[in-house]
């Protein structure tokens, strides 16, 4: 088991290297640079800035410098937030994003599987149609529409919740963003659960359980365990995406997470900041895919790692 984990993590290193390399050169080839402001800087200052950040060196040397820094855990300075290193920015933002995304993830798993099971047990009846319609709404309404609408209703008309801000992570500030973030995921998980649950309920071994007169509750729970397998494999990428922050939610609700850095960094050519977020996201994807595979082994005895 431990050997398997180690082997997988080692196996991910080449993947990570490819990602870092591709991202590095892609953003460098892109036109523009971090100091190309609307009003051009005097050439002398520009030159100094480039020299200070070693951006005047040949690209390949910058690349090896960056990789070298990465190996020692140094993500470099941010070119736009000049008083901070990328490391500091991520350290501040990541816990906020993880907290928000983690809560949304848990909510989505709990509510999504419950709704999906509920619908599957009432296939094609009113309850099923109702749940699936709501799920469809969750999938089709973009979160940047949902967020202002919810703000309008709960913050401005009813005045129950704050319209935005992080409030040092107070519960009341989290409600709207967590819900908005979780809604599409609830919908997807509910649909996935329903689909695979219907399939499992039709399986031969469920018929065996019924033939043996097991209580319906037990039959359902046993079937759910099998039905969750496809949901689990969906959760890997979904969790990585949720935990690394959402640009939309963070912008609309004014939350200091890392989702914004990614887009802002790319648009401002803040090379190191973009690279920092890319590395973070790729790491999350690798780790969560591994976690999913391990969880799979727990759920499905046929999968073994030794």
């Amino acid at each position: 088991m431990l050997r398997y984990v180690l082997r997988r993590l080692l196996g991910a290193l080449p993947t990570l290297l490819v990602i870092v390399t591709v991202a590095f050169f892609l953003i460098r080839v892109a036109p523009g640079g971090p100091f190309n402001l609307e009003r051009p800087l005097p050439p002398q200052i520009m030159e100094n800035l480039l020299a200070y950040y070693q951006l005047d060196q040949p690209l390949w040397r910058q690349y090896f410098n960056y990789i070298g820094g990465l190996l020692t855990g140094d993500l470099g300075p941010s070119y736009v937030y000049r008083d901070f290193t990328v490391d500091q920015l991520l350290r501040q933002g990541l816990p906020v994003s993880i907290q928000l995304g983690g809560t949304a993830l848990l909510l989505a798993i709990g509510v999504g599987t419950a709704l999906g099971t509920f619908a599957a047990l009432r296939q094609n009846r009113a309850g099923d149609v109702g749940v699936m319609t709501v799920a469809m709404v969750g999938i089709t309404i973009p979160n940047f529409v949902m967020a202002p609408v919810l703000t309008l209703i709960f913050a401005i008309w009813l005045g129950w919740l704050p319209a935005g801000g992080w409030g040092e992570g107070a519960l009341i500030n989290k409600l709207l963003p967590v819900f908005t973030l979780a809604l599409p995921q609830i919908a997807v998980i509910a649909r996935l659960t329903r689909g695979s649950m219907i399939e499992v309920l039709r399986a031969d071994h469920v018929r065996t359980a019924r033939a043996n007169g097991l209580p319906p509750r037990v039959v359902t729970l046993r079937a759910l365990r099998g039905a969750l397998l496809p949901v689990v494999s969906y959760l890997g990428p979904a969790a990585a995406a949720l935990l690394t922050g959402s640009v939309v939610i963070e912008t609309i609700f004014g939350i200091p997470g890392i989702g914004r850095y990614f887009v802002q960094g790319a648009l401002n050519r803040d090379y190191t900041l973009v690279m920092g977020t890319v590395v973070t996201i790729a790491l999350f994807i690798v780790v969560f895919n591994l976690l999913v595979d391990l969880l799979y082994a727990v759920l499905d005895p046929k999968v073994r790692y030794d």
Partner: peptide, 28 residues
Amino acid sequence: SPKALNRYRGVRLAMIFQEPMTSLDPLQ
């Protein structure tokens, strides 16, 4: 109802099926 049937199923009336490969729960 299934509940009433369960007084007989698996107690006084039992059934086995053709496909031994799929008729057992693979996760239990």
